[in-house]
């Protein structure tokens, strides 16, 4: 399988690095403090392929902390709030769009 670092990075605007936490699988985002947070608001924002590559490399190196890191698009509104850039990422942040059976 191709490593995330070998894949061609396409960056259109603001992006974050996201993954799933290893021990429980929840969605996490790479922070500027070189850690992971479950809160998108704490994610490090990258805007160029070089920045994205560097953040992704750092995330990939932390294999025990989280798995499957990748670059995900986000939007940053006028107030600086970070919003998911597509439906998939919105569902990952907010949870399923349906009521759970229990």
């Amino acid at each position: 399988m191709t490593s995330p670092l070998q894949q061609k990075l396409k960056i259109n605007g603001s992006s974050v690095v996201t993954a799933n936490r290893t021990w429980d699988g929840i969605v996490v985002y790479r922070t500027a403090a070189k850690g992971w947070s479950a809160d998108l608001a704490e994610a490090a924002i990258v805007r160029t392929p070089d920045e994205a590559k560097a953040l992704l490399a750092e995330a990939v190196a932390d294999d025990v902390g989280a798995i499957g890191p990748y670059i995900a698009p986000v939007q940053v509104d006028d107030t600086g709030k970070i919003l998911p850039g597509n439906l998939r990422e919105q569902i990952r942040r907010d949870g399923v769009t349906i009521d759970l059976p229990v």
Binding site: V27, D63, G68
Partner: peptide
């Protein structure tokens, strides 16, 4: 590593999905 572990977890029915395993 995850690369080493992935096949082992798959052989025990464990996938990684959007929100969780």
């Amino acid at each position: 590593t995850e690369d080493e572990f992935k096949m082992l977890r798959l052989q025990n029915g464990v996938y990684l999905q959007l929100h969780a395993y």
